[in-house]
């Protein structure tokens, strides 16, 4: 009676690597991993702001670093991660936002998700067009 935990030794299901057991969990972890890409990009941009504040030579150094093959490879990975992040963000949105009732009926999850994707595409086109116009 003194050490029941030691005597019983109950089976504890091991949880290490749990997310590799099921494709659903793997998709979940892939989605969560895109947060690392968002963090890396925030650091890249913050460094850019610091270099900009340090003057023209420092800023040009940052631009040169972005031209290196490693940076291009990194940003290719970040690009894919951002697409996955945007897709999954709107996939989940019907579950994270309050219900919207239209005419007494709940707005379909698919409508919310597709509206989000459309907004993302429009936002991308608008920002790219602005950059295009700015550079012209």
């Amino acid at each position: 009676m003194s050490k029941p935990a030691d005597v019983r030794r109950p089976y504890v299901r091991p949880m290490a690597g749990w997310w590799r057991r099921d494709p659903f969990f793997m998709r979940y972890m892939l989605r969560e991993a895109t947060a690392v890409a968002v963090a890396v990009y925030a650091v890249v941009l913050a460094l850019g702001i610091v270099r900009l504040a340090q003057g023209e030579a420092a800023w040009n150094g940052w631009l040169d670093a972005l031209r290196s093959p490693w940076s291009l490879l990194l940003h290719a990975v970040l690009l894919v991660a951002m697409v996955i992040h945007a897709k999954s963000w709107f996939d989940i949105m019907p579950k994270t936002m309050p219900m919207i009732l239209i005419g007494g009926r709940r707005l379909a999850a698919q409508t919310i998700t597709r509206t989000g994707w459309a907004a993302s595409v429009v936002a991308s086109i608008v920002l790219f067009a602005l950059a295009w116009w700015w550079g012209a």
């Binding site: 968002v38 990009y41 890249v44 941009l45 850019g48 631009l63 972005l66 031209r67 940076s71 291009l72 990194l74 940003h75 290719a76 970040l78 690009l79 951002m82 697409v83 992040h85 945007a86 963000w89 709107f90 989000g116 907004a119 993302s120 936002a123 991308s124 920002l127 790219f128 950059a131 295009w132 550079g135 012209a136």
Partner: peptide, 23 residues
């Protein structure tokens, strides 16, 4: 980031460093 992250990474990390399709 869901709305603008992708296009921002493309602009600052790929299009401008390569000089294509943005100057």
């Amino acid at each position: 980031s869901a709305l603008f992250g992708t296009v921002l990474v493309f602009i600052t990390g790929i299009a401008v460093p390569l000089g294509w399709p943005l100057p």
